[in-house]
């Protein structure tokens, strides 16, 4: 085979692309942290995150060892009671117990705290802001922000003469944020200690239809394959990138790789379908229930039910 001349010898360092020996490059540094680089990082981060959570779920531990069905039932029971009680001490007492159980099961408490409390106050808090003020929810003023001097009448709207943050509003908001945050933590702990497919199975044994669960399982599974494909595409580009591509070029690459990915996933869905057909799929999926309810699980369910009722009763006894 005759190689063309240019391939037979090594390329001389061209003035534009040669790496000068003395001072470092400015342009190169900038594009290193370009669009592609960031996207690649995000993808790898996503992969690591999901590997991480599955890793914890696969470790031996107290919460991991419970039957997923028990855990799902416990989640719903506890959510119900948490959202009925109004005493902050009870709520936070429960939260403490939850964190202790989580750390006994090998979960990082810091991770849970970060995952929940950095996000929940932001979203719930913003929605709850109006309820702080006496114009929305009348109550005893805690801090007067603005005094107009006389009551305000805007058409059918009658507003008091001062705008103030109220005691009742503040308490209500703290209660709301606590409830939401603790409920979310409960769900986070459940998902961290239960493998994704066990969780889906458990949901199925309560109410989710089988087809739905199978579709979700396959979505998750192919999401993974596609993410890996994306990672490979980006790495392949990175390997050929000398560091001079502009943001515009990078954006064009992302667009065309998305189109490529679309084609890939289409072809893959066809192949999966063939593979299911070849193994006797006729539109109905049969599966074996592989959960075993042990005595310990029954015991745990008893404890959860008991605590939920106790929390509720304690809240009633403590009164307003």
């Amino acid at each position: 085979m005759d190689l063309p001349t240019w391939l037979r010898e090594n390329s001389p360092a061209s003035p534009a692309t040669g790496i000068p020996s003395g001072r470092p490059f400015k342009i190169k540094r900038r594009s290193k942290h370009g669009f592609i680089h960031k996207t690649l990082q995000d993808i790898i981060q996503f992969l690591q995150d999901s590997v991480f959570s599955e890793g914890v779920a696969a470790q031996p531990g107290f919460l991991q060892s419970l039957d997923p069905r028990v855990k799902v039932a416990a989640l719903f029971t506890l959510l119900l009671s948490l959202n009925l009680i109004r005493h902050l001490t009870l709520l936070w007492g429960f939260y403490l117990v939850l964190l202790v159980a989580a750390s006994f099961s090998g979960l990082s408490v810091r991770f849970i705290l970060k995952k929940v409390w950095l996000v929940v106050p932001l979203f719930t808090g913003i929605m709850a802001i109006p309820a702080l003020f006496n114009w929305v929810r009348p109550g005893d003023a805690l801090w007067v922000l603005w005094d107009i001097g006389q009551p305000l009448h805007l058409g059918p709207l009658h507003l008091p003469s001062t705008l103030a943050i109220t005691w009742q509003g503040l308490k209500g908001d703290i209660l709301l944020i606590s409830r939401v945050g603790i409920s979310v933590s409960l769900a986070v702990v459940l998902t961290l200690t239960t493998r994704w497919h066990d969780l889906l199975r458990a949901l199925r044994s309560f109410f989710l239809p089988k087809v739905f669960v199978t579709a979700l399982e396959m979505t998750y599974r192919y999401l993974f394959v596609l993410v890996t494909a994306v990672e490979e595409m980006f790495l392949a580009r990175k390997a050929r990138d000398a560091g001079f591509s502009t943001t515009k070029e990078q954006r064009r690459f992302i667009a065309s790789s998305m189109a490529g990915l679309f084609g890939k996933s289409h072809q893959m869905s066809e192949e999966i379908y063939f593979s299911m057909l070849a193994r006797g799929y006729t539109g109905e999926i049969r599966s074996v229930e592989r959960f075993h309810l042990r005595l310990f699980d029954l015991f745990a369910s008893g404890i959860v039910l008991f605590s939920a009722l106790t929390l509720y009763a304690a809240d009633k006894v403590l009164g307003e």
Partner: peptide, 19 residues
């Protein structure tokens, strides 16, 4: 379908279950 088994060229497409 029981008598004929097919091992596909692309294992990723062949394997679709959760475990």
């Amino acid at each position: 379908r029981q008598k004929v088994g097919f091992v596909f060229q692309n294992s990723d497409a062949q394997l679709f279950s959760a475990t």
